[in-house]
Nucleic acid binder design. Structure first.
Length: 259
DNA sequence: ATGTCGGTTCACAACCGA
């Protein structure tokens, strides 16, 4: 089974590239983030032509997550257990489905903006709710993983130059402690191979030629339970998808499993 | 190098979020 995750930065803007990528890479299951559309505006008919069922959770112009599958799509859950709101509004940042016997959560963790900002506290509360939800899933006995844009770089090596992040989110101790709590709950950080360079970065800013200079970050993660992690035969960052005209600012991660 | 995108609106230019 081939499972992927990709922050597409607008599924409507990315649709031609998404369809081309699905036809080329042929993942069985895909977790998508930053759909930036309403649930009922998701291009379900277009992905169906390639054999995919779709479950989308989107509200308006921000956020939005989804799961595509061509091996079945069951038990769809929208939102975490006890998920916090931001400024009294629920945001579509988590969706789960069971596909071919594997439970996947597609997540888009809040950015945090800057330490001390209300959005940063929201991010930490959101990660705590993710921990609670993941701990419950881990006890269910089926292989499962949380995949998506975590907006946290697990180690200093996961950003291109840690000296530039002194006052920044994504690298602070509380954010990394939230990832450590997920690992303590039994999840493994499935680190993908970079197809080029030393570090498996998954995100490069559109500005300043960041991709060309490899000024990237590893913030898209696959956190897998023991059964899922033990079945992994390969994992890589598909940096080809970050090239060319009209890319997302994130590259997909592709994980192959022998279940 | 706050240099780019994508989406939205008191829409044909300026904003917000990332």
């Amino acid at each position: 089974m081939r499972i992927a995750t990709w922050n597409v930065n607008s599924v409507s803007a990315r649709l031609p590239r998404l369809l081309e990528w699905l036809a080329s890479v042929r993942p069985d299951v895909v977790c998508l983030q930053e759909l930036k559309c309403d649930s009922d505006a998701f291009p379900a008919a277009e992905v169906a032509e390639l054999g995919y069922e779709a479950a989308a959770y989107g509200v308006g112009r921000w956020n939005g997550v989804g799961v595509l599958s061509r091996v079945g799509l069951e038990d769809v859950t929208r939102g975490l257990i006890d998920e916090p709101d931001f400024e009294s509004r629920a945001e579509p940042r988590a969706i789960a489905a069971t596909c071919g016997g594997v439970r996947v959560w597609s997540v888009y963790v809040p950015n945090g903006r800057e330490p001390g900002h209300p959005h940063y506290d929201y991010k930490l509360r959101w990660l705590a709710a993710l921990h609670g939800t993941a701990a419950k899933e881990a006890a269910s006995g089926r292989p499962f993983a949380v995949l998506g844009d975590f907006n946290v770089a697990p180690t200093d090596a996961d950003v291109w130059d840690i000296s530039l992040f002194a006052e920044s989110t994504h690298v602070t101790e509380p954010e990394r402690a939230a990832l450590a709590a997920l690992r303590d709950a039994g999840l493994t950080d499935v680190i993908p191979r970079p197809l080029k360079h030393d570090h498996p970065f998954t995100y490069w800013d559109y500005r300043a030629g960041a991709f060309h200079k490899n000024m990237g970050m590893r913030i898209d993660l696959v956190y897998a339970d023991q059964q899922f992690a033990a079945a992994v035969t390969d994992a890589y960052v598909d940096r080809e998808a970050r090239k060319g005209k009209g890319p997302s600012d994130h590259a997909p991660i592709v994980v192959d499993l022998d279940l």
